[in-house]
Design a protein around this nucleic acid. Structure first.
Ligand code: SF4
Ligand code: SF4
Lengths: 153, 153
DNA sequence: CCTATTTTGGATAAAAGAGTCTCAATAACT
DNA sequence: AGTTATTGAGACTCTTTTATCCAAAATAGG
């Protein structure tokens, strides 16, 4: 898989937050319910994002979690790096240790191109952009049900 | 990681075979030594490739394994599909079950483009092509040592 | 026929990833 | 002050991936 499960969940949750963002703290329980992700597991993942400064949290009643920046300022790559690290964009195809341009494998040139395409896609896409698209076309973030499930409470 | 470890090893071994291919059977032990891959693990992987018809094997002294087709006729995607399956090219970014064009997630369009780039790269690259490049530029297939290690015995 | 070499296949073990559970800390509300 | 809602942190379990080991089958060569 390109992205780890944790990373995918982190992305989904971040999109959720970006979609409702009026600076309000959203309880993780709400997100785990809506997004159909295990509460405890999601909690751990969001703790990572909090540690990385992408989210901030607030304990107690009316507490929860929110984005530190505007959704327009957050790229997918930020979340991927926070959770999966830079592996995807540094290690690669043949996975030889200490890779790079200096001592490449035969696949390097071709792979580097593809890898850059992935990188660029993740880097140029903002949360807000996807949220807008999701809202406009009612695209899903869960197994069933469209974007509107985010707001039905 | 994009490709599983098994898949990477399978690719390295396939490149090795394509590089020496004169229809001779190469013992797996030789490959595991040269490529610095666990013999038993590599054995398992090559058994898969044999089952998929990409390799054929021969038991006993002077036995081993060889490509069933010319290296020019084998694309990287063949090996990836045989080992990792089609996951990479079907499942994707947000990993929602039953994905596709009918009921997409907000990332679908962008991701599909990137995914196609990966697909195309794997589909258009043949073993022979990489072998020729590897030989010409003495590129490595192992941690240290260039392409020539393949032939030093 | 015997021995050495090599793949096959299954059992097992170790490591990593995914997911669950429990308890402590913090804050709001009464 | 006490109760409730919520995140934080760590231990723990389950599953998948990665890796190891061993015995059986096949084959070449003496
Ligand atoms: S040489 Fe390049 S393509 Fe090959 S494994 Fe290293 S970084 Fe990846
Ligand atoms: S909708 Fe498209 S991009 Fe999203 S998970 Fe499904 S196939 Fe992948």
């Amino acid at each position: 898989m390109l992205l780890s499960k944790s990373c995918v969940y982190g992305l989904r949750a971040s999109l959720y937050l970006a979609a409702r963002n009026q600076g309000e703290f959203i309880p993780i329980r709400t997100m785990s319910d809506k997004l159909e992700i295990s509460f405890h597991f999601l909690t751990k993942i969001l703790q990572q994002l909090t540690a990385e400064g992408i989210l901030e949290s607030f304990k107690g009643p009316n507490g929860g979690v929110r984005l530190t920046r505007e959704g327009t300022e957050i790229q997918l790559i930020d979340i991927v790096l926070a959770i999966d690290g830079s592996q995807l964009l540094t290690e690669c195809a043949l996975g030889l240790p200490g890779c790079g341009v200096k001592n490449p494998c035969p696949l390097h040139d071709k792979w580097a191109e593809t890898r850059d395409a992935i990188h660029e896609m993740l880097e140029k896409t903002t949360l807000t952009e996807l949220v807008q698209k999701g809202k406009a076309e009612n695209l899903r973030l869960t197994t069933d049900g469209g974007f509107d499930i985010l707001f039905d409470n």
